[in-house]
Amino acid sequence: MLEFAFMQRALLAAILVGAVCGTLGFFIILRRLAFIGVGISHSAIGGVAIGLLLGIDPLITAGIFAIAVALGIAVVRKRADLSEDAVIGVFFSGSMALGIVLFSMNHGYQQDLFGYLFGNVLALSTTELWLLAGAGLVVVATIVLALREMLFIAFDEEVARAYGRPVDLLNSLLLVLVAVTVIIGVRLVGVLLIEALLVVPAATAALWTNNFRSQIVLSAGLGSACGVAGLAGAYWLDIAAGGSIVLAAVILFFSSVLIRGRG
């Protein structure tokens, strides 16, 4: 399958996105942020719709919109006397509703919408691949630099705060990283399925090892492996690449539960 240039690009994207999602996914699992991930990723639909309507690259507007939603969740979560779930639910459903209303204003966008919802990695251009690699590098480098600080906050946020660590800044940064990663992954698996790549490889890695260093490396490796396996499956079985990649990750997770279940 690698005789085609578009398949080579797709394969590189799958490896890259899988590794970035797996790395960030470690903190999504550790901080129990899975629902925030769903909220931010689904809210990107609103940004895609704005981009298509205004004639701007939808990935740019989706990126800005997702970061705004991530910061909005962080601010409202801190200020409002509401449960976190409720705040995320408001942002999540509000952004999706905005996207649906904007799409309904022009039926000609529905084909584009399908690509953003479920991914269209085979249409990835070389420029997009480079942008994706650059953004992915920024996400991974940020996590590596802030690793121990973020681990401290996950262990005990109150003690970290008492010791003057920049807890609010790092919490917001984590949500912004989720937003950036969602945009990185939209081309591969789409807005609706990117959450799976943030959660499933990291959850699988947590079944195999209980050290943060090995969990991050294994999670990134599993993310890439599922990307490659899913893409190959999509090619040979002629099925949708996004769904195939996520299914590969889910199969690996349940296999790990059967072998390593903690009981």
Partner: peptide
């Protein structure tokens, strides 16, 4: 299941003393 050793947890107390790269 918190994925850190005792050494890693104690090192959290020294984060203020580490350089900018941490």
């Amino acid at each position: 299941n918190f994925p850190a050793t005792v050494r890693d947890v104690v090192m959290m107390g020294r984060l203020c003393c580490l350089g900018p790269i941490g």
